[in-house]
Computed example of a mutant assay.
Amino acid sequence: MTQLAIGVLGAARIVPMALVRPAARVPEAVVAAIAARDPQRAGRFAAKHGIATVHDNYQALLDDPQIDAVYNPLPNALHAEWTLKAIAAGKHVLCEKPFTSNAAQAREVADAAAAAGLVVMEAFHYRYHPLAARMREIVDSGELGTVRSIEVAMCFPLPSFGDIRYSYPLGGGALMDAGCYALNCLRMLGDGTPQVRRAQAKLRGADIDRAMTAELRFPDGSAGRITASMWSGKVLDISVRVLGDAGELKVLNFVAPHLYHRLSVRTAAVRRHERVRGEHTYTYQLRAFTDAVLRGGPVLTSAEDAVVTMGLIDEIYRVAGMRLRGA
């Protein structure tokens, strides 16, 4: 195999940015087919974006022998079902985050991927940009001293309350949508898997968190805190703060650094700002996925890693007194 033929499950709004445009910059990947609940919509999408094949339904796409891998941007509640079906069909999978509705589903998917020997990657695109590696490099360098606390915020306004992200049956909630980013980043910068100490939700109805805060503790004693919201008093905040006993790291917009970001380090000896240049985060992600499938390259956001994040999401919902997604 010299080129990865990717099929898309659903004509979601994210597909052009997350896959179609990056594929134009990654010669080893081609978006070869699409299927949607509405075949006419899939046809219009394919015509607009130059996708050669339109299938009548998701299973027909999975059964297509010309397709090597699947991109799964379906609603959260459908991630596990269709990722498992893709694995059963022998396809590699790039699955949007959050990986599944809960940790039990994530474990089932991870086990299936391992048994099949397939690449199944969670689509935390920011992890593949050089900024993420630079953040971890600064923490590991000792420049900040012993890390005392890590705070990650992922807050943005989504007042469209009919959006699927406010639907419990579809696996919605601020923790699922924004909070999965915050938890993933917290884990990337921390040492080991943290434990949830406290959690508090602001609700939109009985089962949907429009905002969530959680306090965690890492095995080394350092504190972690996430703030996630789709609608709250904190309208827009996408940031990281790592406080050590010798200094502080702050990063603004760790999720889309190709658009704009600001990294600053403050210690007793220095105050500096850095700019970590690079391509679009989704281009890095697609290149990494293609490399993993074609050459066995590294996967930073594996199915096994997703199991840990989904376990933390489950525990935060429990501590906040809420039902798990997919319950």
Score class of each variant (00 low, 15 high):
Ala11Leu: 06
Ala12Ser: 09
Ile14Pro: 00
Arg21Gly: 01
Ala23Arg: 07
Ala24Gly: 01
Pro27Tyr: 04
Pro27Met: 08
Val30Leu: 06
Pro39Gly: 03
Arg41Met: 04
Arg44Phe: 02
Phe45Asn: 14
Ala47Glu: 13
Ala47Asn: 12
Ala47Met: 02
Ile51Pro: 04
Ile51Phe: 03
Ile51Glu: 10
Ala52Met: 02
Thr53Cys: 04
Asp63His: 06
Asp63Pro: 01
Asp64His: 03
Ile67Asn: 08
Val70Gly: 00
Tyr71Lys: 03
Pro73Val: 07
Leu74Glu: 02
Leu74Ile: 05
His79Gln: 10
Thr83Ser: 14
Thr83Gly: 12
Lys85Val: 02
Lys85Cys: 02
Ala86Gly: 06
Ala88Asn: 10
His92Met: 07
His92Ser: 01
Leu94Tyr: 07
Cys95Thr: 15
Cys95Gln: 14
Glu96Asp: 15
Ser101Thr: 10
Ala116Pro: 02
Val120Ser: 08
Met121Lys: 11
Glu122Met: 02
Pro130Tyr: 04
Leu131Tyr: 06
Leu131Thr: 00
Ala133Cys: 03
Arg134Asp: 08
Arg136Pro: 10
Glu137Asn: 03
Val139Gln: 09
Ser141Leu: 03
Gly145Asp: 09
Thr146Gln: 13
Val147Leu: 08
Val147Gly: 00
Arg148Ala: 09
Arg148Phe: 00
Ser149Trp: 00
Ser149Met: 02
Val152Trp: 00
Met154Ser: 14
Phe156Gly: 08
Leu158Arg: 14
Ser160Gly: 06
Arg165Asn: 13
Arg165Glu: 09
Ser167Trp: 08
Ser167Lys: 11
Tyr168Pro: 04
Pro169Ser: 12
Pro169Asp: 12
Gly173Leu: 11
Ala174Gly: 12
Asp177Thr: 14
Gly179Cys: 10
Cys180Lys: 10
Tyr181Glu: 12
Gly190Leu: 13
Gly190Ser: 10
Gly190Pro: 12
Thr193Lys: 10
Ala199Thr: 03
Ala199Glu: 11
Lys202Val: 12
Leu203Asn: 09
Ala206Arg: 14
Thr213Glu: 09
Leu216Arg: 01
Pro219Phe: 03
Asp220Glu: 05
Asp220Gln: 07
Ser222Gly: 04
Ser222Pro: 00
Ala223Val: 01
Ala223Phe: 01
Gly224Ile: 08
Ser229Asp: 02
Ser232Asp: 14
Lys234Val: 15
Glu248Thr: 13
Glu248Arg: 15
Leu249Glu: 11
Asn253Gln: 14
Ala256Tyr: 07
His261Met: 11
Glu274Thr: 01
Glu274Met: 08
Arg275Val: 15
Val276Trp: 07
Glu279Ser: 12
Glu279Asn: 13
Leu286Ala: 11
Ala288Ser: 11
Phe289Gly: 00
Ala292Trp: 05
Leu294Lys: 12
Arg295Leu: 03
Gly296Cys: 13
Gly296Ala: 13
Leu300Asp: 15
Leu300Tyr: 06
Leu300Cys: 04
Ser302Arg: 09
Val307Asn: 08
Glu315Trp: 00
Ile316Lys: 04
Tyr317Ser: 09
Ala320Val: 05
Met322Phe: 01
Arg323Asn: 08
Arg325Asp: 07
Arg325Gly: 10
Gly326Glu: 11
